[in-house]
Simulated assay, not measured.
Amino acid sequence: MLNLERLRTLDALARHGSVSGAADGLHVTTSAVSQQMAKLEKEVGQPLVARSGRGIRLTDAGRLLADHAARIISQVELAQADVEAQRGRAVGELRIGAFPTALRGLFPSALVELRAVHPELRVRTWEMEPDASLGAVVRGDLDLAVGIDWYNKRMAVPGELLRADLLDDAADVAVPADHPLAGRAEVDLADFGDADWISWNEGQFCYEWLVFTLRGEGIEPRIRHIAEEHQTQLAFVAAGLGVCVTPRLGRGPVPAGVRLLPVRASVRRHIYVVWRADADRRPSIRAAVDALRESGARYAAA
């Protein structure tokens, strides 16, 4: 029997026209795409891709199977949506991925609401970076994912996904209490041209945003320390090891010895949730989106 995940890989390859494009669309590595295609070719017993100059092209068999793959993927989503819609209520399992501060800031109240209003719905959550979680939705590994756009840099959202806005979240610059700018009511990012920075992992969307933004201010950032969690970043700031950008959603307690400085030209990130268009009729999708929207509205009003 053909593997659905491998058919999703073939579908992405057909839509994007290259291994790198398929990898970007699925938010996986190019080697993962190649491995999945090799396994699919072994399953069907004939080549599905062929070299074409520096790139690749689908063989006749590859194009034929890709057409079927697109229909199969759509039918799987529609079948699940129809079964759920026929029952008329949110039931079964719902898988959601979200980055750490969204998971911490939005999900506890949203999940409590879903449990109370939809007791037959089983929600499972994963903490993961937004580029990975969006790819997991495309592949069908997740049903929903929470994404972010910074005010000056948007994340690429695959065309087959729908999205709903949740909230706008402001960010501050965190500095040690004895920093020369610690007494300011507002700052500009350009004020930190000589600062040592504490940032997210290289390659992550927020890391790329920070470097892109500082370079836009004419600053070549000196990133001295890498930490995944905002609380770890703030602990480094408290120790006098540098400064960081810290969003407000899910931030939690700020350590003694840290000052939070609003940015004069407001630094904000837009937070939204995505799901596959084929799953739009599922009551569980709609229920989760509504619960997350209400959680976002409560946070914004606080």
Results as ranks from 00 to 15, higher is better:
residue 94 L to T: 11
residue 97 G to Q: 12
residue 217 E to S: 09
residue 199 S to D: 14
residue 260 L to I: 00
residue 74 S to L: 14
residue 206 C to I: 06
residue 91 V to N: 06
residue 230 H to K: 04
residue 21 G to M: 03
residue 73 I to W: 04
residue 18 S to T: 10
residue 144 L to A: 14
residue 258 V to E: 00
residue 55 G to D: 12
residue 73 I to P: 04
residue 38 A to C: 03
residue 57 R to S: 15
residue 224 R to I: 01
residue 265 A to P: 02
residue 129 E to I: 07
residue 156 A to W: 05
residue 17 G to M: 05
residue 184 R to A: 15
residue 97 G to S: 08
residue 25 G to A: 07
residue 215 R to N: 13
residue 93 E to K: 13
residue 97 G to W: 09
residue 270 H to R: 12
residue 140 G to C: 10
residue 81 A to P: 15
residue 265 A to K: 02
residue 294 E to W: 07
residue 283 P to Q: 11
residue 101 T to Q: 09
residue 117 V to N: 11
residue 81 A to C: 13
residue 262 P to Y: 02
residue 116 A to K: 12
residue 175 V to R: 00
residue 258 V to S: 00
residue 68 H to Q: 14
residue 79 A to H: 10
residue 20 S to V: 08
residue 272 Y to V: 01
residue 146 V to S: 09
residue 210 L to D: 02
residue 141 D to G: 10
residue 135 G to S: 03
residue 277 A to D: 15
residue 31 S to V: 13
residue 204 Q to T: 15
residue 5 E to A: 11
residue 211 V to K: 05
residue 149 D to W: 08
residue 148 I to Q: 10
residue 210 L to C: 04
residue 146 V to N: 10
residue 130 P to D: 01
residue 63 R to D: 13
residue 269 R to Y: 04
residue 103 L to W: 06
residue 113 E to V: 03
residue 139 R to Y: 06
residue 226 I to N: 07
residue 93 E to H: 11
residue 240 G to Q: 05
residue 261 L to W: 01
residue 223 I to K: 07
residue 232 T to L: 09
residue 50 A to F: 08
residue 89 R to K: 02
residue 153 K to L: 15
residue 205 F to I: 12
residue 230 H to E: 14
residue 4 L to P: 05
residue 114 L to Y: 12
residue 187 V to D: 11
residue 34 S to C: 03
residue 188 D to V: 01
residue 69 A to V: 05
residue 177 A to G: 08
residue 38 A to F: 03
residue 90 A to C: 09
residue 289 V to W: 02
residue 169 D to V: 14
residue 101 T to V: 10
